[in-house]
Design a protein around this nucleic acid. Structure first.
Length: 437
RNA sequence: GCCCUGGUAGUAUAGUCCGGUUAGUAUACGGGCCUGUCGAGCCCGUGACCCGGGUUCAAAUCCCGGCCAGGGCGCCA
């Protein structure tokens, strides 16, 4: 039986003949009636089986239907719809496509809320819950809005390698992969290859793809595998050009969600609003003073810790009423070799983080494009130049001033929707103890 | 990787401190009742103490180890 309508498209016209297909969310037998709720991606419909006015084989089928069987049904819209779900069908035919074993390994309905770990063990069943599906509809619309911005502002979508031949920033946090008789690594960021495409004159690009971290992080905001929207642009004056692009990108993504996903936002009980531009910018070393005034001491030259990040988020929220802020001019000593320093104040780098609701969304900034400086900085960081020649050599032959950033897609989704755990924002999350399903 | 807390039916939990009847409840599942349910309701039933070792007459309960989970930290997107 081929469906004629998605459930949300079923007309409220009495007598209309429709065919639907989906899975059974609930059943109830009361007196001479059997009710079966069928859900598809778009909504839920109630099949109302009247025992005394239906073909015997429909009755037999209806009686045997259990939770989460996949079924298809044909029937008519009644004169008066009494089902609270708003869509009701009097079936003339029910076809069981597939039976579900019972009992189910978790309660999808949400009456008894399963633990996240149990839900992830049974993720494909868990995702039948419209609330869980909503997260991914929102995420798709978020990316759609972001890509729409990038595509209409001259950014070329490119793919850069996931398998890399050498660690770029030390290496301890990279997954090793067998590559014939060599060792390869899964990238933790497409950073260096994006820079090489700037050297190539691509001017404006984005790479939407996976990144891996081999850190055994046990927190609600880390995944071993996450997606990044990594953007790089050339001929910038300084890192502020990068910030303006980043905030426009985020605003366009969220705007698209607000315009297209009201139903999902409501279902998730989230509060999403389009942020105002420009986003506030905090700078080192003033950041130390702000923290000092809030009773938090961080020695000059040290990086922010988690508490500092949260304090700054509170500071910005109170002072500017904003959920987003940039932190700029990080200490050079805590940043990698490729960052650009402020020429007149080499203690600080043109290095930016974007924080949303206290969660670090991205790192980025202006990159050093001057060959001699790059070589010097590789030395500063105590890195082996020979291992980086594959990258640095290109800069001998000219490079435009450039910069970029990489936004964590799951993190943005999580912060925007107020999810308690980033694993909710990945269909099949990878964590230190989770490689299946 | 470190610190704290936890692991009890398919799912979610009470009981554990202070060891001792038949391990309680909700939901799911099976059966029954109910003439419109919509988290329906009522009755009956099936079903569980993470793994290994130790202490003890006796361990879900106390001790040790392991694995796993939740939260915090570190690392970062």
């Amino acid at each position: 039986m081929k469906r004629s309508h998605y459930i949300s498209d079923i007309p409220a016209e009495p007598g209309a003949n429709v065919r639907i297909a989906g899975w059974v969310e609930n059943t109830k037998e009361v007196g001479r009636l059997i009710f079966i709720w069928v859900r598809d991606r778009t909504g839920v419909a109630q099949l109302t089986v009247k025992k005394n006015s239906v073909e015997p084989e429909v009755l037999e089928t209806a009686k045997a239907i259990g939770l989460h069987d996949f079924i298809a049904a044909e029937g008519t819209v009644p004169d008066k719809i009494t089902a609270k779900v708003g869509v009701e069908i009097i079936p003339s035919r029910i076809e069981v496509l597939s039976r579900a074993d019972k009992p189910l390994p978790l309660d999808v309905s949400g009456v008894v809320e399963s633990n996240l770990d149990t839900r992830l063990d049974w993720r494909a069943i868990d995702l039948r819950n419209p609330k869980q599906q909503a997260v991914f509809k929102v995420q798709a619309k978020l990316l759609e809005g972001m890509q729409e911005y990038l595509n209409t502002h001259g950014y070329l979508q490119v793919f850069t390698p996931c398998l890399i031949g050498a660690p770029s920033e030390g290496g301890a946090e990279l997954f090793e992969v067998k590559f014939f008789d060599k060792t390869a690594y899964l990238r933790q960021d497409p950073q260096l290859h994006r820079q090489l495409l700037m050297v190539a004159g691509f001017d404006r690009i984005y790479d939407l793809g996976p990144n891996w971290r081999a850190e055994p992080s046990h927190t609600p905001r880390h995944l071993c595998e996450h997606r990044g929207c990594a953007v790089e642009l050339s001929f910038i004056d300084d890192e502020h050009d990068v910030m303006r692009v980043e905030e426009e990108l985020v605003v366009n993504g969220i705007k698209n969600v607000v315009e297209e996903c009201q139903k999902e936002i409501e279902l998730l009980g989230a509060e999403v609003e389009v942020p105002k531009r420009p986003f506030p910018e905090l700078r080192f070393p003033e950041v130390y003073e702000i923290l000092e005034s809030m009773g938090k001491h961080i020695p000059r030259g040290e990086d922010l810790d988690r508490e500092a990040e949260k304090l700054l988020a509170r500071y910005v929220k109170e002072k500017y009423g904003h959920d987003f802020f940039f932190v700029n001019r990080f200490p050079y000593r805590v940043k990698p070799f490729y960052v650009m320093r402020v020429d007149e104040e080499p203690e600080w780098a043109r290095s930016i983080d974007l924080v949303y609701r206290g969660l670090e969304l991205s790192s980025g900034g202006q990159r050093e494009h001057r060959y001699e400086r790059i070589i010097e900085q590789v030395g500063d960081k105590g890195m082996n130049l020979e291992n980086l020649r594959w990258f640095t050599e290109f800069f001998r032959y000219g490079a435009p001033p450039h910069g970029g950033f990489n936004i964590g897609v799951e993190r943005l989704t999580m912060a925007m929707l107020g999810l308690g755990n980033i694993r909710e924002a990945a269909s099949f999350p990878r964590a230190p103890e989770r490689l299946l399903p």
